[in-house]
Amino acid sequence: MSSRALLTEKIAFFCLLLCTLIIVIPVILITAVIVKNGIAGLSWEFLTQSPRLGMRAGGIFPAIVGTVYLVLGTMLFALPVGILAAVYLTEYAKDNWLTRVIDIAIVNLAGVPSVVYGLFGLGLFVVFLKFGASIIAGSLTLAIMSLPVIITASREALNTVPQSFREVSLALGATRWQTIRHVVLPNSISGIVTGTILALSRAAGETAPILFTVAAFYLPRLPQSLFDQCMALPYHLYVLSTQVPNIKPHIQYGTALVLVLMIMIMNIVAIVIRSHFRKKKLW
């Protein structure tokens, strides 16, 4: 190897490192800024009280509760349909044109912008089905946005179960559903759960889909029913950072920190579940 080639390599690798640092250093800085300024805003009152004085004081309790409701609602709808659809596609569907169309649709649905899901939710749930802007409309919108991700992750998990497990169960006279229920699902549940939690954590941080389907600008009381509007952390942060002049930064950063923490906790839970099951896995 000529020394010139080695020098070129050195320069090239340095440039690659530079690219990486340009991406990674801002991530670290952003985290540091949110944590440092956010912690100043965090307090028991901040977490448990409603906003006051035009949101310039008080806490973000209704927004936290609203986001929790929305995530639960999303899960309630998207989880069963998503898993069953994945089971259908991996265990039942024959390899024909319909299956291929569904395949293409799911892959592409995952790439449709979240604001378009918002429009869809507005058109179908809020206006056509007359739910109005409500928790149910928002949850359903987020659920439909999460479905493709949940289906894709669940299919991957189902596909990791060896074919021989299915054959053995069938050969022992178990029916197809018994095989799925007692062999396939127990051996893929960790992957399904992990994928679902990650999809839900994404839904928790989305703003555009809830903008016209559920989010309330300011609603200090907690929602009373599924057909009430509610506040939500991402939208609240949007409001705080663009619509409320002269607000103290620590309220904004505090809100951002709570949202990021919530999502990180969900991510960590997913990672822990995954590694826990990986350790136990024998095949």
Binding site: I23, V27, I30, V33, I34, S201, R202, A204, G205, E206, T207, P234, Y235, L237, Y238, S241, Q252, A256, L259, V260, I263, M264, N267
Partner: peptide
């Protein structure tokens, strides 16, 4: 970075 919600990045 992928997990940070876009609203948070927008704010920052």
């Amino acid at each position: 970075l992928a997990a940070i919600p876009s609203i948070v990045l927008g704010f920052i």
